[in-house]
Amino acid sequence: MSGQPRKPSETNPLADLDEWEDFLLERYPEPEKADAFRDYGDNVRPGVREFYRLNHTHQTFEFVRAKEDEFLGKSRRKMGIWEAMEFLNTLVDDSDPDTELTQIEHLMQTAEAVRADGHPRWFILTGLIHDLGKILCLWGEPQWAVVGDTFPVGCRYSDKIVFHDYFDANPDSKNPEYQTPTGVYEPNCGLDKVHMSWGHDEYLYHVVKDYLPDEALAMIRYHSFYPAHREGAYAELMSEDDQRKLAWVRKFNPYDLYSKGEAPPDVAKLKPFYQELIAEYFPAQIDW
Score class of each variant (00 low, 15 high):
Val147Phe: 09
Glu70Ala: 13
Ile124Phe: 07
Asp165Leu: 01
Ile104Cys: 06
Val146Leu: 07
Leu132Arg: 06
Thr90Ile: 01
Pro171Lys: 01
Asn89Leu: 01
Arg65Trp: 02
Phe63Lys: 07
Ala145Tyr: 07
Lys74Phe: 12
Asp159Met: 09
Trp82Ser: 07
Asp117Lys: 15
Glu62Tyr: 00
Trp122Ile: 03
Cys155Met: 09
Leu132Glu: 07
Pro152Asn: 11
Gly118Arg: 11
Arg115Phe: 07
Met79Phe: 11
Leu91Ser: 06
Gln103Pro: 00
Val146Ala: 08
Glu100Gln: 10
Glu62Thr: 05
Arg77Ser: 05
Ile129Ser: 04
Asp94Met: 00
Ile104Lys: 06
Trp139His: 15
Leu101Met: 14
Phe167Glu: 01
Phe167Ile: 04
Asp96Lys: 03
Ser95Gly: 14
Trp139Phe: 15
Asn170Val: 02
Phe61Arg: 06
Asn170Ala: 01
Pro142Ala: 11
Lys78Asp: 08
Cys155Phe: 10
Ala111Tyr: 07
Lys78Gly: 00
Lys134Ile: 04
Leu136Glu: 06
Gly133His: 08
Arg77Asn: 02
Glu177His: 06
Leu91Cys: 09
Gln103Cys: 12
Phe87Leu: 12
Asp96Trp: 03
Lys160Glu: 15
Cys155Ala: 14
Met85Leu: 15
Ile129Glu: 04
Glu62Ser: 05
Glu105Thr: 05
Pro171Ile: 01
Trp144Asp: 09
Asp117Thr: 09
Glu86Met: 11
Ile129Tyr: 10
Leu125Glu: 07
Asn175Pro: 02
Ala113Lys: 06
Asp69Ser: 10
Thr110Cys: 14
Phe163Leu: 09
Glu83Tyr: 09
Gln103Lys: 14
Thr126Trp: 06
Thr102Phe: 08
Val162Cys: 08
Phe151Val: 07
Tyr157Met: 11
Asp96Tyr: 05
Gly133Asp: 10
Ser158Phe: 10
Lys134Met: 09
Thr110Trp: 03
His130Gln: 06
Met79Glu: 13
Ser75Cys: 01
His106Leu: 05
Arg121Ser: 13
Asn170Trp: 05
Phe151His: 15
Glu86Trp: 05
Leu72Arg: 14
Thr90Leu: 10
Trp139Ile: 02
Arg65Gly: 00
Gly80Ser: 09
Trp122Arg: 03
Gln103Leu: 05
Asp98Arg: 14
Arg121Lys: 15
Gly133Ala: 12
Ser75Phe: 00
Glu177Ser: 07
His119Thr: 01
Thr99Gly: 02
Leu72Trp: 15
Glu105Lys: 11
Asp159Tyr: 11
Ile124Tyr: 08
Thr150Ile: 15
Asp69Tyr: 05
Gly154Asn: 04
Ile81Leu: 09
Val114Ile: 15
Lys160Ile: 08
Glu100Cys: 09
Leu138Ser: 07
Gly154Met: 02
Lys134Ala: 04
Thr110Asp: 01
Val114Thr: 04
Glu141Lys: 08
Phe63Thr: 10
His106Met: 01
Leu132Ser: 08
Asp131Cys: 13
Asp159Cys: 06
Val114Asp: 02
